[in-house]
Computed example of a mutant assay.
Amino acid sequence: MKKENAKLQQELEDQRRAISEVEGEIKTLQSNLTLEQIHAKRSKLANEVEEMEKKLEKLREGVTLVRPEDRKVIQDAYLEKINQWRKRKRLFKDLWDAITENSTKDLKEFKEELGLEYDEDAGMSLQSFSDLMPNGKKRCRGQ
C-alpha cells in the first residue's frame, strides 16, 4: 500500500510539473501577437510613417510655418511681458526692502506669515525666460 501511495504521489508530482510546463507555454503563446494583430499594427505604423514623411517633406521644402509678421508680434508681446515682470519684480523688491528695513522679525518667517513667494520659490527664473529671446533682445528701454 505504501509503495502504491508513493507511486501515485510521484505520478501526481510528474503531472503537476507537466501542467506547469504547459501553462508556461500557453502564457508565452498568449503574449505573442497573432498574425492579424501583426498586420494591423504594421499598417498602423506604415500610416504613421507616411504622415511623418509628409510633414518632413514640407519642412524640407522650406515652408514658412509662422509668418514673419506673426513672429514679430509674438516676440514683441513676449518682450513686453518680460519687461513688465522685470519692473514688477524690481518694484516689489524696493517695497519689501523698505518694509523690512527696520524689522526685528526673521524675514523668512515674516514672508511665510504674509504668504509671499519669490519667483525662485516657485521654480521660476526671470533670467531663463529672458534667455529665450533671440538676437540678444533682452531689454527694451524707453517703453
Score class of each variant (00 low, 15 high):
Lys93Ser: 13
Asp70Phe: 03
Lys41Ala: 15
Asn32Pro: 01
Ile74Ala: 15
Asp119Ile: 02
Gly62Gln: 04
Trp85Ser: 05
Val73Cys: 10
Pro134Phe: 03
Met133Arg: 13
Phe92Ala: 12
Lys108Thr: 08
Lys7Asp: 02
Asp76Tyr: 00
Glu57Cys: 04
Gln30Ile: 05
Arg71Leu: 13
Leu35Ser: 11
Arg141Ser: 09
Tyr118Val: 09
Glu80Tyr: 14
Asn32Phe: 09
Asp121Cys: 06
Val66His: 09
Trp96Gln: 10
Ala46Phe: 11
Lys137Ala: 14
Arg42Glu: 14
Thr100Lys: 00
Asn5Leu: 11
Lys111Met: 03
Arg90Phe: 08
Lys54Thr: 02
Glu61Ala: 02
Glu112Val: 07
Asn102Met: 08
Glu109Gly: 05
Glu57His: 04
Asp14Cys: 13
Leu95Ala: 06
Ala77Asn: 12
Tyr78Gly: 01
Arg141Phe: 08
Leu126Met: 01
Lys41Glu: 15
Val66Lys: 11
Val49Phe: 05
Lys54Pro: 05
Leu12Ile: 15
Arg71Tyr: 09
Val22Thr: 13
Gln143Cys: 15
Lys54Trp: 05
Gly142Ile: 12
Lys93His: 09
Ser20Ile: 13
Ala98Phe: 00
Gln75Phe: 03
Ala122Asn: 04
Gly24Ser: 14
Gly62Ser: 07
Met124Ala: 00
Leu65Ile: 08
Ile82His: 01
Arg88His: 13
Glu113Phe: 01
Lys3His: 03
Lys3Ser: 07
Asp14Phe: 11
Leu59Trp: 01
Ser43Pro: 04
Ile99Arg: 00
Ala98Gly: 07
Asp121Pro: 05
Lys89His: 10
Arg16Val: 11
Gln30Asp: 04
Lys27Asn: 07
Thr64Lys: 01
Arg17Val: 13
Lys105Trp: 04
Trp96Asn: 14
Asp121Asn: 05
Arg16Thr: 09
Asp76Val: 01
Ala40His: 06
Arg17Asp: 12
Ala18Gly: 02
Val49Glu: 04
Glu13Asp: 10
Asp97Gly: 00
Arg86Thr: 03
Gln37Ile: 10
Leu56Tyr: 08
Leu114Asn: 07
Ile82Gly: 06
Asp106Gly: 08
Lys137Met: 13
Gln30Val: 04
Gln37Trp: 06
Lys41Phe: 14
Asn5Val: 06
Gly136Leu: 04
Arg90Met: 08
Val66Pro: 09
Ala122Cys: 07
Leu132Asn: 10
Arg86Ala: 08
Thr34Glu: 12
Gln15His: 06
Glu117Ser: 10
Phe110Trp: 11
Ser128Glu: 03
Glu112His: 09
Leu56Pro: 07
Ser43Ala: 09
Gln37Lys: 10
Val66Ala: 09
Thr100His: 00
Ser128Leu: 03
Leu8Ser: 06
Glu21Ala: 10
Glu48Arg: 11
Thr100Met: 00
Leu56Glu: 08
Glu113Ala: 01
Ser20Trp: 12
Leu116Met: 06
Ala40Ile: 07
Leu79Cys: 03
Gln37Ala: 13
Glu25Arg: 15
Leu107Val: 10
Ile26Trp: 00
Val22His: 12
Asp131Ala: 06
Gln30Phe: 04
Glu36Val: 14
